[in-house]
Design a protein around this nucleic acid. Structure first.
Lengths: 337, 337
DNA sequence: TCGGGGACTGGGAGCGCTCCCACTGGAAGC
DNA sequence: GCTTCCAGTGGGAGCGCTCCCAGTCCCCGA
């Protein structure tokens, strides 16, 4: 501002005048629309270059009723939930896909009431062309807002208790089941599950997968030991678990962070991993490789999740009717199980 | 879209008509401007409620020449650089500060040429009210773009080779020096530094701090062992370092991730930490607490960095002239040194 | 030769909002 | 009593772009 050239931006009218054409022609030339003679097209291009013209995106947005931006809304009561590298990777994927369509990415952390109110307004004020919604928990007010939105909405993961028309999710059940079966097939019989928050669909689905895996093997599933996906909660859950079931020989943790916490507790408790207790995580974040021992874990395609959400949104904005997507997960075997 | 009410959004004109006032009065009422009688103000509020009116942000932006959005641009040749939790935390801070001023956050990952071109356009098309720029390396084309921007620009960290007028940085030199002095004061004499990329200012400044600390103690600083801030690069650098200087008894790593990598290498090499080799990291990310042993590290106020960048930008947008900021770092002593 | 397409062209009407300004009328000042 | 002032009001002109549409011109077939 203070430091920058205060000279006004040239407008399309000025470009047109400078090129000796009408505003309409200049507009068409700029947008590569037909019905512009070669000579005038070049004249416009020259004028654009000479004047350093850049179209005003706001004016264009008003005229076309398209903002050129998509919003990614991350819900959660604690803003630090977002500091999870998971979201960063979703963003990388979404950003790449949006870039191809020349859309900008708006990020909304709906952690406070204020934040949620702003999201509600965004959803109705046409401040974006569409919205990607993530991390909805039970009774999340955003779920209802989304229904009233005046723009396409894509869910990342399914909200608890409802199946939206358009979502991209990851095969949580299948992954958790594969993790459980892996341990069972290695002879573990007393396998427990440290779950993520059970007011999220991911948390529930992963527990369901664990239970399915146990039942399929004819074993008795244990009730969930609930954490909140973080390392400390995993450590705490593991401690509680050990106290209650000292003979546990396998643990499925619904996140790598919780698995890392479990590892820590097991180490201080003098249990060897995987000799005494096998541990499988979920996510395949960087921490899984760094952990000691390196974690066997369920890999989920996080960037792809973001990318596919963005693509689905793009299709929706484009008037198409894409179908919901369930992305596969796969077990990555390392040393912990 | 397909699923949503296709009923057009009510406009301000309709609100005005419904409330029996002029558009001007309705506009003033909406913006809490003076010169509106109490009666009409209430009439407008009622109409807004009944019609479910939400102002069209694009139209407002066009009229006011303010977009209501600030952009955070993260530069880097590899999009995955952004997956670093560091940026996520910067975003949390920036987002919170912007929320107070009711600005939206646009995120631009300028990793590809395409991405950089889009940023350049954003900077000139008035697509945002201001920009926060991060992670500029030597000769980053974004540095020049920023100079030509038609909007306020705040730097997060200083770019290599130039000191912009408005930036928020962290006391890298002081932190690195404190880390080094901590080890030296504990009797370590053969302290090495595993540096971050030396084409970033943070990488250089942290090495400088290490060197200062060594020189101040009358010790000979070693040349930098360069990594790229990631865990594997730290492990590799540590291996090289051990090969060249088997008698090293202290390591300052310019990031926690590299410190974690160093820890891993030391463990496999059979060196005890901190008994044989002391290790200090930088950042104080979650990994520092989880590491085994927990890392002594230089804490930098990451959320505050984001917050202060946003506040500075806000001040700039507001026509003020804030001064550049250097945020303090502090040593957090745990077990690794 | 004449009418009928196109390919071009540019005027003008928006998109939905803000804001300047001229205008009103009642309260305050002399 | 008559100015002076100002809160309150609404008309209208933008903000910078897109897009519809009427109009021009030229080429072709009949």
């Amino acid at each position: 501002m203070a430091a920058n050239a205060p000279r006004r931006q040239p407008t399309l009218d000025e470009v047109a005048e400078h090129a000796g054409v009408s505003r309409s022609v200049a507009s068409r030339a700029l947008n590569n629309a037909p019905h512009v003679s070669r000579a005038k097209r070049e004249a416009v291009e020259r004028a654009v270059r000479q004047l350093g013209y850049v179209p005003n995106s706001t004016a264009r947005a008003l005229a076309t009723r398209q903002t050129g931006a998509a919003a990614l809304v991350v819900s959660g009561e604690d803003p630090s939930i977002f500091a999870d590298p998971f979201f960063a990777r979703v963003i990388v994927g979404a950003s790449a896909a949006l870039e191809e369509a020349d859309l900008h990415l708006m990020l909304c952390l709906a952690a406070s009431d204020r934040g949620r109110k702003r999201v509600a307004e965004l959803l109705r004020s046409r401040g974006a062309d569409g919205v990607m919604l993530m991390a909805l928990r039970e009774d999340d007010p955003l779920t209802r807002m989304a229904e009233e939105a005046r723009m396409p909405v894509v869910f990342g993961g399914r909200p608890v208790g409802s199946v939206p028309r358009w979502y991209v999710d990851v095969d949580n059940v299948g992954g958790a089941r594969a993790a459980t079966e892996h341990m069972v097939s290695r002879g573990r019989t007393r396998v427990a599950a440290i779950c993520g928050r059970l007011d999220t669909e991911a948390g529930r689905a992963r527990y369901r997968g664990y239970r399915d895996g146990m039942l399929a093997a004819g074993l008795e599933p244990l009730p969930p030991w609930e954490g909140d996906f973080t390392e400390p909660s995993g450590a705490a859950a593991m401690a509680a678990l050990l106290a209650r079931h000292p003979d546990v020989d396998g643990v499925f943790a619904a996140s790598d962070n919780m698995a890392a916490g479990a590892l820590r507790t097991l180490r201080t408790a003098g249990r060897r991993v995987p000799a005494d207790v096998a541990v499988v995580g979920f996510d395949d974040l960087a921490v899984a490789q760094i952990a000691d021992p390196p974690l066997t874990t369920v890999q989920q395609p996080i960037e792809a999740l973001g990318r596919e959400m963005a693509r689905m949104l793009l299709a929706l904005v484009d008037g198409q009717d894409p179908t919901a997507l369930l992305l596969p997960t796969r077990l990555v075997v390392r040393s912990s199980a």
